[in-house]
Every structure is written in C-alpha cells, then in structure tokens.
C-alpha cells in the first residue's frame, strides 16, 4: 500500500477550488480515492453534491477526464465509456491501461441508480463504483433515502408529534452487491485514510466490477460541526453502526475491530438529526436501534469468521 509520504507526492487529481461545504466528506473521499490510483483514470459522476459542486462551468476540480450525464445512470454511462475503451483497445487504437471510477451519492446509488448499478455489476464492466454515502438526498436539501439511518430527522422524514423521524433501517447495499458475485465489495470511511486507500488499491486491481460504500459525513444534513468530519466518521466505525469490512471473491474480512465497541449514543449525540432519540420518551426506539446494530455486528463477525 502507498504510504502517506508517497500519496503526498502524487499529483492531485481532484483539486481545490470546488464549492463543496467546509467539512464535507465527499470532497475528502474523492481526493483520497483519486490519489490512491496511479494509472490513468476516467471518472463518471452521478448527479449530486459532488457533481454540482466540482464542475460549475467553466471550472472543474477534475484533473482527469470526467463525464456526467444524469442522476440514475452513472453505472450505465460509465459502462459505455468502458465499452468504448475496450473497443478501441481491441482495435489497437489505445495502449494505456485505464481505470474507470464511478462516483454516486446514496440517492444515486441505493435508490434511483440501483437498477443501472445492478446492470453494470452483472455485466462485469471493469470499473470501481464509489458510493459517497451521506445517508440522505443532501443536494436537494436533506430528504430521506433508503440509506438513511432509522430514527433520523430529514426534511421528508421529519420528527413530529406523531412520528419520531425515519421509520426504516437502511438498506444493506453491500450485501446486495456481494450477491452480484463481483470480485470486491467493501465499506469504508474517510476518517481512516489507510483503510480507504488500501481498499481502492485492491478494488482497482481486480478485472471486473468492484464497489466501495464510503460513509460520508454531511455537516449540513446530519448536521455536525465541520471540524469533526474525520472524527465523526471514525466514531461510526467505533460504534459499529458503520462497520469496516471487505468481501474479496465472496470472503468477508473485518478491516477494523474497535478496541471497545462504543454505544451508538456516542455517535448520535454529535448530530442534530438524532437529538430527539436521546430524549427519555424515545428510549425504546433508541434501544431498538442499538439492538439492530448489535445484531448486524454479530452477524458480520460470524460472516468474517466463516
């Protein structure tokens, strides 16, 4: 794996000047993912925060060829780019070994983009799909997605007198991707750079479709202090609400085991979207969520042992 020193010497492929919020996880993830890849890269981007904030014409933060067409289709449009590349390679019109990377938020990945994601994964296009998962439709103003945590307040799952925030647990997209029998699936966070960089390096070494779901703190939607982005991401892993693992050719492996599994309240208390869960009247809901996190964690440990 590349060392920090080596990474620091590499040419930046996602450069400053973009209009992402201070403390945004997406920009950090994009920068780290791009730094982790040494080969020539072509990027596809779904509509979302990262896209709108990094390519306001005539400016672009992308120091690599980059294409965006719509919200739900980055897997399909990048499939087309990759197919074009394969065709040119076959015809002897290009020598370079090119890496293809798709970026999509959780809305463009878990929800509206799920069909094209599944299609591209099933067809086995050689690309890495990175979901920067900030757990809601942040670009349109914090609406719930199927990646939103249970109990979270969003603008379409608001906390009211009758309903205490989002009613469902998030979709387990990593498992869905594993079920596609693709060579590499992982979760990660920007707060542990070596975890993310290592996983990206691994992912792009496979000859097929690979997927990394990266939790992306959103200071505007969660919201949290912009200065604690990395800390809050690490805390998600330490509370096991966002465990870090990888699935290589179907084999699960934990990539981070917290020394002491912290209660989810440690994570919740830093984010206003969960503030209501810490009130006494919502104690049963809080317990239900903790129980689900525990169950999922135990199940993951079993998968990793097996």
């Amino acid at each position: 794996m590349a060392t920090l020193k080596q990474l620091a010497k590499r040419e930046e492929r996602f450069v400053s000047g973009h209009r992402l919020c201070p403390g945004c996880g997406a920009g950090l993830i994009a920068r780290m993912v791009m730094l982790a890849i040494e080969k020539p890269v072509i990027v596809g981007n779904a509509t979302g925060c990262l896209e709108v904030a990094s390519t306001i014409f005539p400016y672009s933060s992308w120091n690599v060829p980059w294409v965006h067409s719509a919200f739900e289709n980055v897997s399909a449009s990048l499939s087309g780019v990759e197919a074009a590349y394969r065709s040119l390679k076959k015809q002897g019109k290009i020598d370079e070994d090119v890496v293809f990377v798709a970026f999509g938020g959780d809305g463009g990945t878990y929800d509206i983009g799920l069909q094209s994601l599944s299609g591209a994964a099933e067809r086995g296009h050689k690309m890495l799909y990175v979901c920067y998962n900030n757990q809601a439709y942040m670009n349109t103003g914090v609406q719930r997605s199927s990646a939103t945590s249970k109990g979270a307040h969003t603008s379409t799952s608001p906390v009211g007198k009758a309903i205490p925030g989002k009613g469902q647990f998030p979709k387990d997209l990593a498992s869905i991707m594993v079920a596609h029998n693709i060579p590499y699936v992982a979760t990660s966070i920007p707060g542990r750079w070596n975890d993310l960089v290592n996983k990206v390096e691994k992912a792009v070494s496979f000859n097929g479709f690979t997927f990394i779901d990266v939790l992306s703190p959103c200071r505007l939607g969660w919201p949290h202090e912009p200065s604690i982005t990395m800390e809050i991401a690490r805390l998600a892993a330490e509370t096991c609400i966002w465990p870090l693992y990888e699935v290589v050719e179907g084999k699960y492996r934990l990539t981070f085991r917290p020394k002491e599994k912290k209660p989810i309240t440690e994570w919740f208390k830093l984010q206003r979207r969960f503030a209501h869960l810490l009130k006494p009247e919502n104690q049963p809901l809080l317990e239900e969520i903790q129980k689900e996190v525990d169950t999922k964690w135990e199940a993951l440990l079993k998968k990793c042992e097996g």
């Binding site: 072509i42 596809g44 294409v67 067409s69 719509a70 289709n73 399909a76 449009s77 990048l78 499939s79 087309g80 780019v81 990759e82 197919a83 074009a84 590349y85 065709s87 040119l88 094209s116």
Partner: peptide, 11 residues
C-alpha cells in the same frame, strides 16, 4: 446512457 458514455469517449 451507455451510448452517451461511449460517444463522449469518442467512438
């Protein structure tokens, strides 16, 4: 979408 990607790639 794939045609758009391919055409944007230049083919």
């Amino acid at each position: 979408s794939a045609c758009i990607g391919a055409s944007a790639a230049g083919v």
